[in-house]
């Protein structure tokens, strides 16, 4: 039933310049379906719009985020910001060309419309 499926969460293929040797992690996501689209929400704290890259190609949605590295080392540390990467498989019933993406308070929201032929169509009933 699910038409947006996640690719295995394996270590991503590094495509950045080799000198940027920072940790990469897969962001946590929610995916839900509405009548007309699929919505993906991804937690990417520390990413600014300039560091965000969302690419929807024919059968794949790739989400990348770069974080600014802190210049000082914390005295007490429980987390380390990392770049984000995650890829999702898209099926043919999605209209990837009309994908929209917004970033607010560290949460990326990607909306992929269903292709028009997959959207429910109301059939008017004539009374005789």
């Amino acid at each position: 039933m699910a038409t947006v499926t996640t690719a295995p969460t394996q270590a991503p293929e590094r495509r950045e310049a080799p000198e940027r040797a920072v940790r990469t992690m897969a962001p946590r996501v929610d995916i839900y379906e509405t009548e007309k689209s699929y919505v993906l929400l991804a937690d990417m704290p520390g990413v600014t719009p300039d560091g965000l890259d969302v690419v929807a190609e024919r059968d794949e949605l790739v989400v990348r985020g770069r974080v600014e590295r802190p210049t000082t080392t914390p005295d007490y540390q429980e987390f380390e910001l990392a770049d984000y990467y995650r890829a999702f498989s898209l099926t043919e019933d999605l209209d990837a060309d009309n994908t929209t993406a917004t970033l607010r308070d560290g949460v990326l929201r990607v909306e992929i419309p269903k292709s028009p032929r997959m959207q429910p169509k109301k059939i008017p009933v004539r009374t005789e």
Partner: peptide, 26 residues
């Protein structure tokens, strides 16, 4: 308990606490 994770950085002027907690109602 342990959400959100916290980092602390100390300097002469004080202490900076940072905690990643995306999408929180302001």
């Amino acid at each position: 308990g342990d959400y959100p994770p916290i980092n602390l950085t100390r300097d002469d002027g004080g202490i900076t606490l940072e905690a990643p907690c995306p999408g929180v109602e302001r």
